[in-house]
Amino acid sequence: MDYIIDALKDGLWDTVKMLPFLFAAFLILEVIEHYSEKHRNGMLTRIGGAGPLVGALFGCIPQCGFSVAAANLYSGGVITVGTLLAVFLSTSDEAVLLILGNPGNGAVVIRLLAIKVVIGVLFGYAVDILLRKSPMKRKQLGNICDHCGCEEEGGVLRAAVRHTIQIFLYLLLFNCVLNLLLEAVGIETLSRILMKDSLFQPVLAGLVGLIPNCAASVALTELYLSGVLSFGSVIAGLCASAGIGLAVLFRVNKNGKENLKILGILFLCSIIAGMLLQAVM
């Protein structure tokens, strides 16, 4: 019984000490998103052949704004599937904020973002070259924030508080569960269950990443920070985790078969990248 109480107390403390940082980070990001919102469509629609490169660079900015914008623009026939995938693959959701919340991980964040941008650029151009298709006009563009809640009444402060509370609750739940598991079975057993250092762990992480919710990226990041997931596996999971962008794509693009094809390509690119990193690292 004592180990359960200790695990829950440690999970609570580990989460609470990140709270001020999370709120400050989300407030900054909400301000940036709010004031860049009117320019976001324009940036992505004027990039032409540089689509995958620009998409990957903007996609690595934490938060859902560019993945939502890319889903809407692809549905409207404005950007190519390669540009869409570049944004999705480089999107880091809340992972960057969580890693930065643990001191001494600045180099990890830089490496993670750089690798995800390279993955987005390479696979984005590869998909466009292989498909060799211009996007068809499918529908009129809607507001890019129709599906992510960033225009809700209350402005950036309310949005920052809402995001902070949401991630705090996810973190609290996951940290407590993870601490209980580590106390009960040990990190070596948990790592073995999750196939650490196996070429198949990126596949498992990629499947988790496809869950269209920030809880997936929270879980993947915390498992990596605890030493249970390898770097290759967390890259696979976070590449597959396109934030809310995938959910928006399935909602605004009525071609279900096309959406499933994009989902499959995203998953395949993610696990290939993860397996390659697993093999070389």
Rank of each mutant, 00 (worst) to 15 (best):
A7N: 07
G11N: 11
D14R: 15
K17E: 12
F21M: 12
L22K: 04
F26A: 06
E33C: 09
Y35G: 07
S36N: 03
E37W: 11
M43Q: 03
L44Y: 10
G48M: 11
L57M: 13
F58C: 09
F58W: 09
G65D: 06
G65C: 03
S67R: 04
Y74C: 01
G77M: 04
I79A: 06
T80E: 09
T83S: 14
L84G: 05
L85W: 06
L85T: 04
V87N: 01
T91N: 15
T91F: 04
D93K: 03
I99K: 01
G104N: 08
G104D: 05
G106F: 11
I110P: 00
L112C: 07
A114R: 01
K116W: 09
V117I: 15
I119S: 07
I119T: 11
V121D: 05
D128H: 10
D128N: 14
K133S: 08
M136S: 11
R138H: 07
Q140P: 01
N143E: 09
I144T: 10
R158V: 12
A159R: 11
A160N: 06
R162S: 12
R162N: 13
R162Y: 06
H163T: 14
Q166V: 09
Y170C: 10
Y170S: 04
F174E: 01
C176I: 14
V177K: 01
L178W: 09
S191N: 08
K196G: 02
L199A: 11
P202I: 02
V203T: 13
V203Y: 08
L207C: 12
L207H: 02
V208D: 06
L210M: 15
P212R: 08
A215P: 00
A216M: 03
S217T: 15
V218H: 08
A219F: 02
A219K: 00
A219D: 02
E222T: 10
Y224R: 04
V234W: 07
G237L: 05
S241G: 13
S241A: 15
G245N: 09
A247M: 14
R251E: 12
R251C: 05
R251F: 00
N255F: 05
G256D: 03
K257I: 12
I262L: 08
I265Y: 04
F267T: 05
L268G: 01
C269E: 05
S270T: 05
A273F: 01
A273Q: 03
